[in-house]
Design a protein around this nucleic acid. Structure first.
Lengths: 245, 245
DNA sequence: TAATACTTGACAGTGGGACTATGAAGATGT
DNA sequence: ACATCTTCATAGTCCCACTGTCAAGTATTA
């Protein structure tokens, strides 16, 4: 057992070193010799555990996605609200990248466009997120939450593309300190996208914007007119009054 | 001169072949021997023109960005409208990628995350676009077109990240036929983003949504009340009446 | 037409890094 | 103590980027 434990830490040390070096340089520029020195093992040991350099590369996302990603998907079916479910998906997606900077650099800058990566579990997890998002958007369109002419694919690209772009630029600038984390930008971001695609509730009729003075004058009139006042109470669904500030 | 012409076509043939092979496989998987066969020249000739394989790679964006990109920037200073200028920037950005699929695959999937690429003219052109966009957004916030609490960096990442994501996914799926080009998605896309960040005109007062029946009743009242009716004419700036459908 | 310079190609060779094969040294379990 | 399993060092293969050289065009000039 002590043997197994040591083997495990050895394997982990190799993967840690590899992740660091792959992310900082790049897969092609990194050499096995360099990784072996960083991990404190011989080159032969690396070939022992991972047949090839490429296998070592792909062992990394496989491991990390198993560890961190799956669990956050379990709650989704319990969120009935479409927008809430979308927020949860985005949250877990951001968490995945925010939890491990080296890993997100590796995935977003190098693996994402790699053909073999697309056949890994890690990519399948990302695809599941993408697919769930698409489902949410379609459901929102179907049930009237979103505008019927919204393009579900476009919306999804907005959601995922923006987040990826934020991470990619952060990495390319050498991961500087930020006053706002990407996680903290999620809600303002979602508000912009969602407010842009929500269906307008009152499709027919009139919309009136009144300043405070006019609003008071109108209030006087309504109070003095019993006919309209009673209507205001009976037809609540089709009439909304919102106060600003 | 005939010599110069032949040399030019030879050099171009090499770059064309290289672009195709780099984009379809990848820079690392492509071999000089393969490119030389595709271009119909000897390996030595490639080393004659481009010292190294990497130099050949970077000669490609240098050439293409010189050819196509610069001109579309010239019009920008003449567009006074902030949103129109943003649209023009996005348009030229999309055009760059839409004009040459091989090139956009190379840039977006391989070069974008490459350190050396960031020191090329091609990347400088992209940075100029990004910078102009940021300027537009800031100007829009400053002059009241956009909400004062909008995050300019976030907006820019939305604009560029979405477009890049759309192209990247199109490439990763093997560039299937689309019923809508990315160019055609630009205006719906911009409408979502911009409507999400435009400043609301009436910050104070009341907003009333009325169905048709109630609107008619209110119309009656307003017609019979000279005080409020005169107000409606004098205070036009702060009061808007929009008819839906 | 002859001489000169420049372009292209064939070929041989170097070097670096991924990967293999092998056997010795050490650690572990019984 | 013995067998087994892990780790390492060494030596060697293969592939591919890249260099150097020389010969064969091809173009330009005298």
């Amino acid at each position: 057992m002590a043997d197994r434990v040591r083997a495990k830490t050895r394997k982990d040390r190799i993967m840690d070193a590899a992740l660091r070096i792959f992310a900082e340089k790049s897969f092609q520029e990194a050499t096995i010799s360099e990784i072996s020195k960083e991990a404190g093992v011989s080159e032969a040991t690396i070939y022992e555990y991972f047949g090839t350099k490429e296998d070592l590369l792909f062992a990394i996302p496989e491991k990390i996605s198993n560890d961190t990603y799956e669990e956050s998907e379990a709650v989704l079916p319990f969120i009935k609200d479409v927008e809430g479910r979308m927020r949860a998906i985005m949250l877990s997606y951001i968490q995945l990248y925010e939890s491990n900077p080296h890993y997100s650099a590796l995935v977003l800058l190098q693996l994402m466009s790699n053909k073999r990566f697309r056949q890994t579990q890690a990519h399948a997890a990302i695809r599941r997120s993408a697919h769930s998002l698409l489902d949410c958007i379609r459901e929102g369109i179907a049930n009237g939450t979103f505008r019927p002419d919204a393009d579900a694919y476009l919306i999804r690209s907005m959601l995922m593309g923006t987040i990826e772009h934020l991470f990619i630029h952060w990495h390319m600038q050498g991961m500087p300190r930020r006053e706002k984390t990407i996680m903290e930008m999620l809600d303002p971001f979602l508000e912009i996208v969602l407010s842009g695609i929500r269906a307008k509730k009152e499709q027919q009729g009139l919309t009136l914007h009144l300043n405070l003075e006019d609003a008071r004058a109108l209030g006087q009139i309504l109070q003095n007119d019993p006919a309209l006042q009673s209507k205001a109470e009976s037809a609540d669904a089709s009439r909304t009054i919102k106060e600003r500030n």
